[in-house]
Design a binder for these strands. Structure first.
Lengths: 206, 206
DNA sequence: TAGATTGTTAATCGATTAACAATC
DNA sequence: TAGATTGTTAATCGATTAACAATC
């Protein structure tokens, strides 16, 4: 799963560095330091330097890092110096919101296919897409060479959708359904569940 | 921030245990073991036992854990044996999807107020809510004694919304905007950003 | 130059795992 | 009882931090 030997916990921080640097760019900042970046992210400067040093030497003693250079390097490392096509499965409220979200493209992602099982929805437009029958998922995804998918179906349907996606050759799944997915070892899964985050915080309240 | 001395990384796993147990209940399972639960979540049995042992002795040697008992204990520990009122700020596509989401209430949360800054949206219905003017946020949130909020506004507006929420006495923020929020130390922030998860996975692809 | 900041090493800190006595 | 599984301890493993020589 981890071909390069870089700890996954470090890989997981790189997208956060990238986002912070892109936010800095929007603010017109072109130079930064591990100190400044760490301050912004609530992470120690030493950790940022150590993380980056796993991949190369991107800074200069005395002056720090060039923001555009570091952005470029991180995009290359994370393989988002290209655009990844994605399939979206589940055209409910959340699926609609995600299909219309404008924030993917500048980060290396674009939705290409949208599926649902509901006959009422199949054939309907969703933004610039036409909702396709989930029965055609395997064929359509295979034909498009898509490797990344998002699941926004009800929890009971999520595992069977995951099975279809795996069959279609998908290698990365972002799962919005509140269930643990069972997939082969070569398929990556990440999970988004607002309730998990809310319950994490309520522990500390009162 | 961590009053009880329990490591935050352990607290963060408890909601996952709770969700897994609730999924088991839906499947009619009433007994489980650290082995089975760990298997389901991809976590070691030893870690689950160690985590739980921080809070008490909830199992029985030889037989494992009662699912409903463990659910109850976790709900108590996470303080979701009650219902937390929430404010939602941002009535765009994502805000709409979240406002309509049915998965909060059984997990200890209910949206009570929805705000937006757009005059076109203020006064409009959103599900069972009426979208309120963000100018009234501080007064309305204070009057309702709400401590938990979700931010689903565009990135440029997120920090100023966070400032308003802090002013209104909010102590926990779930932030969907792709920016780092600056808040006082007694305010908890959790962040949801699909791009971060996608970029984490693309590192391993190809 | 003097000041600042990197990349890296060694030391510290904390989290995970293995193992097992206790006991249901 | 015999088998299974807990709660917990000690050992291992890995991640973070502190410190500093190198150098821009």
């Amino acid at each position: 799963m981890n071909q390069t030997g870089i700890p996954d916990i470090i890989v997981g921080r790189l997208p956060k560095y990238l986002r912070a640097l892109q936010n800095m760019t929007s603010g017109g900042i072109v130079k930064t330091s591990s100190q400044e970046l760490g301050n912004y992210l609530g992470i120690s400067a030493a950790q940022i330097r150590k993380d980056l040093s796993q991949f190369g030497e991107f800074g200069k003693q005395g002056t720090g890092y060039s923001v555009p250079v570091l952005i470029q390097e991180l995009q290359r490392i994370l393989k988002v110096d290209r655009v990844w096509d994605m399939a979206l499965v589940g055209a409910g409220d959340l699926g609609h919101a995600i299909a219309r979200y404008q924030g993917f493209i500048d980060c290396g992602f674009v939705i290409k296919l949208v599926f649902d099982a509901d006959p009422q929805k199949i054939g309907q437009p969703l933004g610039t897409f036409v909702i396709q029958d989930i029965a055609d998922l395997v064929t359509a995804v295979q034909a498009s060479n898509i490797e990344v998918a998002m699941i926004t179906v009800p929890p009971q349907a999520a595992q069977s959708v995951a099975d279809l996606l795996v069959k279609a050759g998908i290698k990365a799944i972002l799962n919005y359904a509140p269930v643990t997915l069972n997939v082969p070892g070569d398929v990556h899964v990440q999970h988004i569940d607002p309730v998990i985050h809310l319950q994490h915080m309520t522990y500390y309240l009162e």
